[in-house]
């Protein structure tokens, strides 16, 4: 069989099985309350939840909340990635700073960002800024550590070559360090993007600044369980969109890189 048609068969098979998986999951979801394994009061029918989802999609307030969540996500991610790239590059390039900050970084990094929620509430109250503190703290480290590794990973031969060709500092950053660090940077950005979304929703749930997270808590306290399930699906879809989007960006921006080129050839 020609390789291209084998690949076509494989793709079709993957698609068919994947669809079967989703359909099977929805069927199981519909059947569990229908057969009374879990009362429909606690686990609403899949059809009801999906119908509710359709309703929400026609509601402007719902989209405003999506917008608020995504705004917090975007701002947090931007602040964190710019700060992490700047600091990571400087600290990564200067051995003295790297050594001096090592223990501090290793100590601060594992601190769970949600531990700062009470502090953020005290300082900023129920506002976007409080959520941003949490989002930035969580996604900063993801990015920062990757930048630190990336900047330090410059090939010794390439570095020596650059030096013997007398490349200026800015040229070295542009042609040597940036290409080396870019794959790390993109990995960090992808990780930071999904972490930022998690924390954006979490912050809305706990701090109750407006957004999807607060909507979920409100539905919960109103015992609107269909709404809770529908919103959980919405957050999942948002997460999926963020993951897929950043994977795409990663591929695009690294199309010249061995790891991505290799993947496409196979």
């Amino acid at each position: 069989m020609a390789p291209s048609s084998t690949r076509a068969v494989r793709t079709t098979r993957k698609l068919a099985l994947g669809t079967a998986g989703i359909v099977g999951f929805l069927l199981a979801w519909q059947l569990i309350p229908a057969l009374g394994i879990i009362s429909p009061q606690y686990l609403p029918y899949a059809t009801d939840t999906l119908a509710r989802l359709g309703e929400e999609f026609r509601d402007l307030e719902f989209w405003r909340n999506v917008g608020r969540t995504m705004l917090a996500w975007f701002l947090g991610l931007m602040i964190a990635s710019v700060a992490a790239t700047a600091l990571g590059t400087i600290i990564g390039l200067v051995p003295f700073l790297r050594r001096a900050t090592h223990t501090t970084v290793e100590f601060l990094r594992p601190i769970p960002s949600v531990a700062l929620i009470p502090l953020a509430i005290l300082i900023y109250g129920i506002q976007l800024q409080a959520a941003l503190v949490i989002i930035v703290f969580a996604s900063f480290w993801q990015m920062f550590v990757q930048v630190l590794y990336g900047v330090a990973d410059v090939d010794a031969v390439a570095r020596d070559t650059a030096r013997s060709f007398a490349l200026s500092r800015s040229e070295r950053v542009r042609y040597l360090i940036l290409p080396t660090a870019l794959p790390y940077l993109m990995t960090g950005l992808r990780l930071a993007a999904s972490v930022a979304l998690i924390l954006a929703v979490t912050a809305e749930m706990v701090i109750s600044n407006p957004g999807l997270g607060r909507m979920i808590v409100h539905s919960q306290s109103a015992s609107d369980w269909v709404g809770v399930y529908a919103l959980v699906i919405v957050t999942g879809l948002l997460g999926l969109a963020v993951n897929l989007g950043f994977r795409l960006i990663e591929r695009r921006s690294l199309s010249w890189h061995q790891s991505v080129r290799g993947e496409i050839v196979l």
Binding site: K14, G18, A20, G21, V201, M205, V232, G239, L240, N243
Partner: peptide
């Protein structure tokens, strides 16, 4: 291949909304 899309979706759900 059966589970891949489902896993992708479930992983993407921010865990705190499951509370």
């Amino acid at each position: 291949e059966l589970l891949e899309p489902l896993l992708e979706f479930f992983r993407a759900i921010p865990p705190p909304v499951l509370i």
